[in-house]
């Protein structure tokens, strides 16, 4: 794959940004405070790798402004921390986007049977908290009589519980982050902790999120979720293949959301929900590739996006197969 090339691209971007930063302020307030803090820590004899309070973590810069060396140090620190916590070798990936890729997603709602296999496939892949429970995907159930006229979200029931799905007379609409081209959540964030990557994925720097939850209020799709307490993931179920902007374990007090399995898709793999779906209703690919399955379905099928009227321009297309 083009992993090394992607990394190189990221590094180039990082270096440019770093150079720009250094031009504008040779000794910034943040750098000064960082140096002072680390110095003070050394003076009073704080261990550098203390778990309880990590000075380096506290003074860590925004992910897009870190130099390659700083990224390397940060990743090393995080891997050490997670590996110790979960008792296995955890890797944190920072693979950047490819220039020729803009991701798109398709969901065939004429096939979805509401079995929720995607929900739990996602939870396992993306290290979502089991208690309190966080689900990035919610499957809404509608009455066929109602949904045939209009999809009214107020009538969708995510808590349905049947012996068998699909239940007679019901249809289903799974909903998660729509990876909008014009994301309201990004505009709402006061700290730029969330942004849209060049390949279209809206990501969060969990170390930069202050937990104000403005983005949750701004998202028209209910796709963002907050860690009200320390998330709990059983060590044996924790997925050790993580990405810095994706499924690495989140701390208490930050917002999280679907990243189209950035840790998989940046390496060419399908997202976990696509692989979990037993009826093959979920499609994923590159919108810039005319031969991709997502382009085929956009050109040959009837597609629609949710809440098109509010101009968020989702890259998540529902279609009738």
């Amino acid at each position: 794959m083009k992993g090394s090339e992607q990394k190189k691209n990221t590094e180039v971007t990082q270096t440019k940004k770093q150079a720009k930063m250094q031009d504008s302020r040779s000794v910034s307030r943040r750098n000064f405070m960082k140096a002072a803090g680390v110095g003070a820590g050394a003076l009073i004899g704080l261990p550098r790798d203390a778990d309880a309070f990590d000075l380096e973590e506290y003074f860590q810069d925004h992910f897009t402004e870190l130099s390659p060396e700083e990224i390397e140090r940060t990743i090393e620190r995080l891997e050490r921390k997670y590996s110790k916590k979960y008792g296995k070798a955890v890797t944190v990936d920072t693979t950047g986007p490819n220039d020729d890729v803009l991701f798109g997603y398709g969901l065939d709602i004429s096939r979805c049977i509401g079995c929720r296999r995607c929900v739990y496939g996602c939870v396992e892949e993306n290290n979502q908290s089991r208690d309190p429970q966080i689900h990035w995907i919610r499957v809404l159930e509608f009455d066929n009589d109602e949904v045939i006229r209009n999809i009214n979200f107020d009538e969708g029931d995510p808590f349905y519980d049947h012996e068998e799905a699909p239940a007679p007379g019901k249809s289903y609409l799974p909903i998660a982050c729509q990876q909008c081209e014009n994301p309201e959540c990004v505009k709402a964030c006061p700290t730029t902790a969330t942004w849209q990557e060049p390949d279209g994925i809206v990501v969060i720097d969990y170390d930069w999120c202050i937990g104000c939850r403005y983005c949750i209020a701004a998202c028209p799709y209910g796709a963002r979720h907050f860690n009200w307490t320390e998330p709990e993931i059983p060590a044996d179920e924790m997925n050790p293949n993580t990405h810095y902007l994706g499924n690495r374990p989140r701390p208490h007090g930050v917002v999280e959301k679907c990243t189209w399995c950035i840790q998989r898709t940046r390496h060419g793999r399908y997202p976990a929900c696509v692989e979990a779906c037993p009826v093959g209703a979920r499609k994923f690919g590159n919108l810039l590739d005319p031969d991709s399955e997502i382009r085929y379905l956009m050109e040959h099928k009837r597609t629609f996006v949710l809440k098109a009227e509010i101009d968020t321009k989702p890259k998540f297309f529902y279609f009738y197969g």
């Binding site: 794959m1 398709g106 065939d108 898709t265 060419g268 793999r269 399908y270 696509v274 692989e275 779906c277 037993p278 009826v279 093959g280 499609k283 994923f284 690919g285 590159n286 991709s292 399955e293 085929y296 379905l297 040959h300 099928k301 197969g321």
Partner: peptide
């Protein structure tokens, strides 16, 4: 067949690129 060949009918696993 055309839908299946394009990967839009039926389940695909593996890689979106590859």
């Amino acid at each position: 067949i055309p839908d299946w060949r394009a990967g839009v009918h039926g389940k695909r696993t593996g890689n979106w690129r590859g």
